Measured scan of single mutants.
Amino acid sequence: ELSWTAEAEKMLGKVPFFVRKKVRKNTDNYAREIGEPVVTADVFRKAKEHLG
């Protein structure tokens, strides 16, 4: 699991709890794919757009 900024964690907190774990995993995987060592708010937004 990658490191997350406080802002990205806050955004994740707005995701319904029953899918939060999956969203975190998918976002981590997306960040790795694009070469990001940390999940930022920008990476979170891009993952959301990319993953739907």
Rank of each mutant, 00 (worst) to 15 (best):
residue 1 E to V: 12
residue 1 E to M: 11
residue 1 E to C: 11
residue 1 E to H: 11
residue 1 E to R: 13
residue 1 E to K: 11
residue 1 E to Y: 12
residue 1 E to Q: 13
residue 1 E to P: 15
residue 2 L to N: 04
residue 2 L to W: 04
residue 2 L to E: 03
residue 2 L to C: 05
residue 2 L to A: 04
residue 3 S to Q: 13
residue 3 S to A: 13
residue 3 S to K: 15
residue 3 S to D: 09
residue 3 S to V: 15
residue 3 S to P: 15
residue 3 S to Y: 12
residue 4 W to C: 01
residue 4 W to Q: 00
residue 4 W to S: 01
residue 5 T to C: 04
residue 5 T to A: 04
residue 5 T to Q: 03
residue 5 T to F: 01
residue 5 T to K: 02
residue 5 T to V: 03
residue 6 A to M: 11
residue 6 A to T: 09
residue 6 A to K: 11
residue 7 E to Q: 07
residue 7 E to L: 06
residue 8 A to I: 00
residue 8 A to Y: 00
residue 8 A to P: 01
residue 8 A to K: 00
residue 8 A to H: 01
residue 9 E to Y: 09
residue 9 E to G: 04
residue 9 E to I: 15
residue 9 E to R: 11
residue 9 E to D: 05
residue 10 K to R: 14
residue 10 K to N: 09
residue 10 K to P: 00
residue 10 K to D: 11
residue 11 M to S: 04
residue 11 M to V: 04
residue 11 M to P: 00
residue 12 L to P: 00
residue 12 L to H: 01
residue 12 L to E: 00
residue 12 L to G: 01
residue 13 G to Q: 15
residue 13 G to E: 15
residue 13 G to L: 15
residue 14 K to S: 08
residue 14 K to C: 09
residue 14 K to V: 06
residue 14 K to E: 14
residue 14 K to A: 09
residue 15 V to L: 15
residue 15 V to N: 03
residue 16 P to F: 05
residue 16 P to I: 04
residue 17 F to K: 10
residue 17 F to R: 10
residue 17 F to M: 11
residue 17 F to H: 09
residue 18 F to G: 11
residue 18 F to M: 10
residue 18 F to C: 14
residue 18 F to S: 11
residue 18 F to Y: 13
residue 18 F to P: 10
residue 18 F to E: 11
residue 19 V to N: 13
residue 20 R to M: 04
residue 20 R to H: 03
residue 20 R to C: 03
residue 21 K to P: 10
residue 21 K to I: 12
residue 22 K to Q: 14
residue 22 K to D: 09
residue 22 K to C: 15
residue 22 K to M: 14
residue 22 K to V: 14
residue 23 V to F: 09
residue 23 V to P: 00
residue 23 V to S: 03
residue 24 R to K: 10
residue 24 R to C: 03
residue 24 R to T: 02
residue 24 R to Y: 03
residue 25 K to D: 12
residue 25 K to W: 14
residue 25 K to V: 12
residue 25 K to H: 11
residue 25 K to N: 11
residue 25 K to Y: 13
residue 25 K to F: 13
residue 25 K to L: 14
residue 26 N to I: 15
residue 26 N to K: 13
residue 26 N to W: 15
residue 26 N to H: 15
residue 27 T to V: 15
residue 28 D to K: 02
residue 28 D to Y: 03
residue 28 D to V: 08
residue 29 N to K: 12
residue 29 N to I: 11
residue 29 N to C: 09
residue 29 N to Y: 09
residue 29 N to R: 12
residue 29 N to E: 12
residue 30 Y to L: 04
residue 30 Y to N: 01
residue 31 A to F: 01
residue 31 A to M: 02
residue 32 R to Y: 06
residue 32 R to N: 06
residue 33 E to A: 14
residue 33 E to W: 13
residue 33 E to M: 15
residue 33 E to I: 10
residue 33 E to H: 11
residue 33 E to N: 09
residue 33 E to R: 11
residue 34 I to E: 06
residue 34 I to F: 09
residue 34 I to N: 10
residue 34 I to R: 09
residue 34 I to A: 08
residue 35 G to V: 03
residue 35 G to A: 05
residue 35 G to T: 03
residue 35 G to W: 03
residue 35 G to D: 06
residue 35 G to L: 05
residue 35 G to P: 02
residue 36 E to L: 07
residue 36 E to T: 08
residue 36 E to F: 07
residue 36 E to S: 11
residue 37 P to F: 12
residue 37 P to Y: 12
residue 37 P to H: 11
residue 37 P to V: 12
residue 37 P to I: 12
residue 38 V to T: 07
residue 38 V to I: 13
residue 38 V to C: 08
residue 39 V to E: 00
residue 39 V to P: 00
residue 41 A to H: 04
residue 41 A to S: 07
residue 41 A to P: 07
residue 41 A to C: 06
residue 41 A to T: 06
residue 41 A to N: 04
residue 41 A to M: 07
residue 42 D to Y: 07
residue 43 V to K: 02
residue 43 V to F: 05
residue 43 V to E: 01
residue 44 F to N: 00
residue 45 R to K: 10
residue 45 R to A: 09
residue 45 R to V: 10
residue 45 R to C: 07
residue 46 K to G: 07
residue 46 K to Y: 05
residue 46 K to W: 09
residue 47 A to V: 05
residue 48 K to I: 14
residue 48 K to P: 04
residue 49 E to R: 14
residue 49 E to D: 10
residue 49 E to S: 10
residue 49 E to K: 14
residue 49 E to T: 11
residue 50 H to V: 11
residue 50 H to N: 09
residue 50 H to A: 13
residue 50 H to G: 07
residue 50 H to D: 06
residue 51 L to I: 10
residue 51 L to A: 10
residue 51 L to H: 12
residue 51 L to G: 10
residue 51 L to K: 09
residue 52 G to I: 13
residue 52 G to V: 12
